[in-house]
């Protein structure tokens, strides 16, 4: 077993143990922190497919995160008021929310990606940002669903066999989704598709020369990436019982990128390590000083300047390309 795989299992085991340890030690609040870690890790795992594997630096993944959040909020609101959605009576069910979130984010990603992928480099960063801003402004002026106030979720959507109002049940759902997301990431990376995606990132011309067109591959990666991030967004809104416009705002996109770089770009465990450290720093610094963002910024600077390759790179060494 390689050190990277060992690290992945260790991190996941630690995350899974956290709520149980919290319960035993009498800090039930930590369950919520662990859920937050799992959800952010899932969102960053989605982005890691586009950014880590494909080298597509999307500065607009907050859009997909927010679309997922609003899917959860909209379904919960309609179910609560017994209003039909698009003419259908819908149950307040999480799997349905995930489906809606993934489909709508996938559709948006297919359209915006088709335009954005015509550009590259900094232009790609900026055009994805522009699309995300469009969706942000659309959401804050959409009065039917809260506008600038966002959309509260009075009652979380349900999941068969679980009570989503219980923190530990919600954590288990988020953790299972994270595992599924990591599995998708891993399958993509080891597949022929992943190899082509990785190759297109390293040398676009050569990939084209051997008969693989980079554009459709990148577009598929972008869409899959958006769908996973959207499911995470839905869970984030469920956790906070609130679909906030700030989920769509550009600092969220920056935060997702931060999680990935902090953990290790393109590494399986990168987003997990990044999300765990980030949430811990946020909580720990927040408890000792109200100026925690100042020290968070300094920490991030330290990581980017002196610990290249993030946490996973620090522990498991450079990525091996087999």
């Amino acid at each position: 077993m390689t050190r990277e795989r060992l690290l992945t299992f260790a991190l996941l085991a630690a995350l899974l143990a956290l709520p149980f340890a919290a319960q035993a030690l009498g800090y039930p609040f930590y369950t919520t922190l662990a859920t937050r870690m799992a959800i952010l890790a899932l969102a960053a795992t989605g982005l890691n497919i586009a950014l880590g594997l494909g080298g597509l630096v999307s500065f607009g993944h907050a859009a997909f995160f927010g679309i997922g959040g609003y899917a959860a909020g909209i379904v919960a609101t309609h179910a609560m008021n017994a209003q039909p959605l698009l003419g259908l009576d819908i149950p307040a069910s999480m799997p349905l929310v995930w489906l809606l979130a993934a489909l709508s984010a996938g559709l948006v990603a297919a359209i915006t990606g088709a335009i954005s992928l015509r550009t590259s480099g900094v232009y790609f960063i900026m055009i994805t940002l522009a699309f995300a801003q469009m969706i942000f402004y659309f959401a804050i002026s959409w009065k039917a669903y809260g506008g600038e106030d966002g959309l509260s979720i009075a009652l979380r959507n349900g999941f068969p066999g679980m009570n989503t109002a219980v923190p530990r049940d919600l954590f288990m759902i988020a953790f299972a989704l994270l595992l599924a997301g990591l599995l998708i990431f891993w399958r993509v990376r080891v597949s022929r598709f992943g190899a082509a995606l990785h190759a297109a990132r390293q040398n676009e011309l050569r990939v084209a020369a051997i008969g693989i067109e980079p554009f459709p591959i990148r577009l598929v990666a972008f869409v899959v990436s958006a769908m996973i991030t959207a499911v995470a967004g839905a869970m984030f809104a469920e956790l906070n019982r609130f679909a906030s416009p700030s989920m769509l705002a550009w600092p969220m996109s920056g935060e997702l990128i931060v999680l990935i770089i902090l953990g290790g770009t393109g590494r399986l465990a990168g987003p997990v390590a990044g999300a765990m450290l980030y949430v811990m720093l946020e909580y720990w610094l927040g408890s000792i000083t109200e100026r925690w963002q100042f020290f968070l910024g300094l920490t991030l600077l330290g990581v980017v300047l002196f610990a290249r390759g993030g946490i996973v790179g620090l522990v498991a060494g450079k990525a091996r390309h087999g």
Partner: peptide
Amino acid sequence: VIRRLYDRDHLDQVLATFALILVFSEGTRW
């Protein structure tokens, strides 16, 4: 800070300058 970032890729630059925003904003509030 910035001097160390010129030969890095855009991703590192985005992260480092994002971190600078946090430092500047919170420092100014301080």
